[in-house]
Amino acid sequence: MPIREILQLGHPVLREVAAPVADPTAPDVAALVTDLTDTVAHWRETTGYGRAIAAPQIGVLQRVILLRLPGHPVWALINPSIVEHSPDTIEVWDACLSFLSIFMRVTRYPWIRVRYQDLRGAWHETHAGAEDDLAELLQHEIDHLDGILALDRLTDVKSICSRQEFERQFKSSSPYGR
């Protein structure tokens, strides 16, 4: 399938709420997952960044996210929602394929429980924590489905830095350095 254009910061679709997927088994959902897989793989190969992507980032307002973590199978989550989270929060580095030139510190929960459907329509729940930085990654992608960007979770405007400065000072101790 084709590599799709990733919408960039300022595009109004990134601020819209995505609609639930009525039938996760539909062929158009499988095609969307293929497009998301190919697109995030392309970005990872060309930029060194890209662990996941949400359908709104390619202009599709459906509740679909795709994770492509190194050393793991590709994982599509249809209609994901956070059903439980830790009572405390942490501060982590974040960036986005929709504004890859900007890095910032954001607030996230250290662990979450996510309910989602697979491509067969079956419901699952998963607990996500610090391993593979899964909790922060899922929160970032689920936020996209609700029109929320990492910039909205910013802890301090002084933490914003360019990609070049982030790589010079902080990348090696962040999830992006792995």
Rank of each mutant, 00 (worst) to 15 (best):
S162F: 04
V83R: 01
R4H: 04
P56C: 01
L154E: 12
A22T: 14
P56N: 09
E16I: 04
T25R: 15
W43F: 01
T46D: 08
V21K: 00
E5S: 01
L7Q: 14
G50N: 05
K158D: 15
R108L: 06
R115D: 15
E125A: 08
H11D: 15
V83F: 00
R15N: 09
I148R: 11
F99C: 14
E91C: 02
L7G: 14
I160P: 01
A122T: 07
P80Y: 00
I78F: 07
T37G: 10
Y49M: 12
A22S: 10
R163I: 08
A19I: 13
E91S: 09
S81N: 09
T126A: 12
L36W: 09
F99N: 14
R178A: 02
R113H: 07
H85K: 08
I78P: 02
I148H: 09
Q164C: 06
D94H: 07
A22H: 08
R15L: 09
L119Y: 06
L9P: 00
A31I: 12
V21P: 03
S81H: 12
L69N: 07
E5W: 01
E131I: 02
A128P: 06
Y176W: 15
R168A: 11
A30M: 14
H124V: 08
A55R: 07
H124P: 03
A18G: 11
R44C: 05
A22V: 09
E131M: 03
H42E: 14
V64S: 05
L134I: 00
W93K: 08
H140I: 06
F99A: 15
P87M: 06
R168Y: 03
R153M: 02
P24L: 10
A18Y: 15
E141I: 02
K171V: 05
V157P: 07
K158A: 13
I65G: 09
I65D: 13
L61P: 04
V60R: 09
I142H: 07
M1Q: 14
L134M: 12
K158W: 03
H72T: 08
R168D: 12
P20F: 06
E5A: 03
E131P: 01
A135R: 02
E5H: 05
I148C: 09
L149A: 13
P24M: 10
R44W: 11
H42T: 06
A95Q: 12
S81L: 00
I112K: 12
R63Y: 13
V92W: 10
D94I: 05
V64G: 06
D156A: 00
D133R: 02
D88H: 10
E45C: 02
F103E: 12
L119N: 12
P2Q: 13
T126Y: 05
D28C: 07
V92I: 13
E84N: 03
S81Q: 15
L66P: 01
Q169F: 03
V60Q: 08
L149E: 15
I160L: 14
V21F: 06
I102P: 01
F103I: 14
G48P: 08
I6F: 08
F99S: 13
A31Q: 11
L149G: 11
A41N: 05
Q8C: 13
R115C: 10
H11K: 00
Q57W: 09
R168M: 07
L134C: 04
V114H: 06
T107Y: 08
G129H: 04
D38K: 08
D146P: 01
M104L: 15
G10L: 12
D152F: 00
D88F: 05
L97F: 06
A128M: 10
P2F: 04
R113L: 07
Y109R: 12
S173E: 14
A26C: 02
A95S: 15
A130D: 06
